[in-house]
Design a protein around this nucleic acid. Structure first.
Lengths: 238, 238
DNA sequence: CGACGCATTGACAGGGCTCAATTTAAGTGG
DNA sequence: CCACTTAAATTGAGCCCTGTCAATGCGTCG
């Protein structure tokens, strides 16, 4: 799996919150040290939905895709998470299964803690529990927002929102515009927006003509974010 | 607003979790006593999305509808909550707005706590914080599940799931079958499933012919839950 | 260079939305 | 208790967005 990005180009500034922010640096170090790390290669599954949730993870390098699979082969992508972000907070509770499946995108390294360790950490550091609650609330909010969009907006508008959301989270400024940080196929975008790869392809082609985006194989650059924002808010082509 | 239900008929047994379960009865009493109560009549708004989140609430009597409104008039219904259930956990954090709007269905009574009080309670009772985290995780799970269904399934299947979900939460056994506890119009069901009142009406008419449901004005009884479950899982009419 | 996987484009059809016209039922006032 | 009002529900007709399927093009890698 190739690195598609120029490491020189700067990441976009993004609002801090994920991971272990909210505790002091030395405590963070101690926590990180207590985790067990694991390496994954592209496509490998870290945890699977409906399996009993035993461990909670933090991404150290690379990227995870969090999806939910449906019986008849479809899947919904919920998030792409990168270094510093945590997932599988459910592991805090016994008797619950993972709600999502986590798949590595390219080579990825994670740190993991089992339930006992997490509980101990949460009891030792009350700030951590509050921070975790905040992270979960944040995600609930995002899913609810996307649910509303899915039920109220047409495909193209949702696709615009998806690109902007992924761009904010994983964008990297380049000469052309803002490049999405990792390989992202039409099919993946379709799974993210609840449509088909064909509709995504057609739409990107049209936007390429408008000069809003520039795209290639598993590679997308937003060249006119402003136009895309306007469209994502109104759904109108004017 | 009339009471549509016979108070004699038993509520379905439901898995406990919501509200203040998870703390001892006497503490629960103390907490309840510290809340400020308010009365609402049908249609009245308790809190509005995007308003700053100041208070967190527990339903004592009646019912709240939690929805998210979209610019162009559409709305998505996320939950109907009844006595004992809490909402607006976001109020725990400063600098965040309510993600949803809460509207009373019929006369309703709630208890509310402001941010300061909640924070104090959470610090006094660590169990409460963990329980709150559990409630939020539970809801995140449900929304993600519904998101997947919305993106992968057709209207009728989603409608079957919606009826069953609401039935489990707010069903009451009667001679005919299981009656939904509160006035529920075609439009509301449409907002719950992400469709239109027309499609809901047509579908319910068809199911009424099958003997799966019996329905009237803002009133729905599931007469053959088993058939509906089967359909909700396969989407097939066999 | 050949092969495999991703992307593009066209043709087609159907699920479900839109809109309009009625019908039904509940609530209200005399 | 009945006529009147109002809101919910039903039903039909038409069409459009978008999913489905098939054929082809293209970029990457072994």
């Amino acid at each position: 799996m190739p690195e598609i990005l120029d490491p020189q180009s700067p990441r976009l500034p993004r609002p801090a919150l994920p991971g272990l922010d909210g505790v002091s640096p030395q405590i963070r170090q101690a926590i990180l040290a207590s985790g067990q790390s694991a390496r994954l290669e592209g496509g490998q599954v870290l945890f699977r939905q409906d399996d009993p949730a035993r461990r909670c993870y933090l991404v150290r390098r690379g990227r995870l895709k969090l999806v939910k699979l449906h019986e008849q082969g479809k899947e919904a992508v919920f998030r792409y998470i990168g270094p510093g972000e945590i997932t599988a907070a459910v592991a805090v509770f016994k008797e619950k299964a993972y709600p999502l499946t986590a798949v590595a995108i390219g080579d990825t390294e994670v740190a993991g803690w089992d339930r006992g360790t997490i509980m101990a950490l949460l009891r030792q550091h009350p700030d951590l529990a509050l921070h975790l609650l905040q992270v979960v609330v944040e995600r609930l909010d995002e899913v609810q927002t996307r649910y509303l969009e899915l039920s109220a907006e047409q495909v193209q508008q949702r696709l615009a929102r998806a690109l902007l959301r992924i761009m904010k989270h994983s964008g990297r400024r380049t000469a052309e515009g803002i490049l999405i940080d990792f390989p992202l196929s039409r099919q993946e975008l379709a799974d993210y927006t609840g449509t088909t790869l064909f509709t995504v392809s057609r739409t990107l082609s049209a936007w390429e003509k408008n000069g809003w985006v520039a795209s290639g194989r598993e590679r997308i650059t937003i060249t006119d974010p402003h136009a895309l924002v306007k469209f994502s808010e109104t759904g109108e082509t004017d």
